[in-house]
């Protein structure tokens, strides 16, 4: 038995190292650039006063503030910065009537103005306010306004933008003349998705490139 020790030992070490080498050959770390979205919802509440059957109210949106909030969230929750952002787009938007002091029908628009361009983002076409009270309306978007908002966001991200403000204007009129002076409150929510690209080193045997 003692005479076999040498061959047994060699066989044992042979097996061990074959095993290790096989794993080393298979085991490979690789870098994968993974894209994932970070949706951030912002809201604006507008107290609208209807005078003589119509309304018109404008509120500036400060892109500096928006991107500061976005950068803070990216850093605290994901450990990345605005430099890691691949693109930024509007995912969706909705308006919600929070309060109204008359059950009336309204027609109007929500317009965006950026760098002297203006387009319609949302349309309110003959909506009875009490019917949609507290119900977000996400199906009122217009492609022209979406394009302008995406342009403003992407330009700010790329080179600071042509303007640091996007003006949000809502205007319209009552379809019924019974109540020409009244008030209602509208909330507009924007969900803007930032697509991050983040490099991950992953261990993937047989998955090397």
């Amino acid at each position: 038995m003692r005479n076999n020790n040498g061959s047994v030992s060699m066989y044992r070490y042979f097996l061990s190292y074959i095993f290790i080498i096989a794993f080393l050959l298979m085991a490979t770390c690789k870098n994968v650039l993974v894209y994932y979205p970070v949706p951030l919802t912002s809201e604006v509440v507008l107290d609208i006063e209807v005078v003589n059957g119509s309304y018109n109210k404008t509120l500036p949106l400060d892109l500096d503030i928006y991107f500061k909030d976005l950068d803070d969230q990216l850093q605290s929750d994901y450990g990345v910065s605005l430099d890691d952002v691949d693109r930024i787009k509007l995912e969706g938007a909705a308006y919600t009537i929070l309060e109204t002091d008359a059950d009336i029908v309204v027609s109007g628009n929500v317009n965006l103005t950026y760098a002297s361009q203006s387009d319609t983002l949302m349309g309110l076409e003959g909506v009875r306010l009490e019917e949609i009270l507290d119900k977000p309306q996400a199906d009122a978007l217009y492609s022209e306004g979406i394009g302008l908002l995406n342009q403003a966001l992407q330009e700010y991200l790329s080179f600071g933008g042509q303007s640091k403000y996007v003006d949000l204007n809502t205007n319209g009129s009552l379809s019924e003349s019974t109540a020409t002076n009244m008030k209602f409150t509208m909330k507009i929510e924007f969900t803007i998705t930032t697509v991050i690209k983040k490099n991950h080193e992953v261990f993937d045997p047989l998955g090397y490139k």
Partner: peptide, 13 residues
């Protein structure tokens, strides 16, 4: 209307 919904990617394992 031109809005985009983005689904996250995976690790390509």
């Amino acid at each position: 209307s031109g809005t985009e919904f983005v689904f996250p990617g995976g690790y390509d394992l």
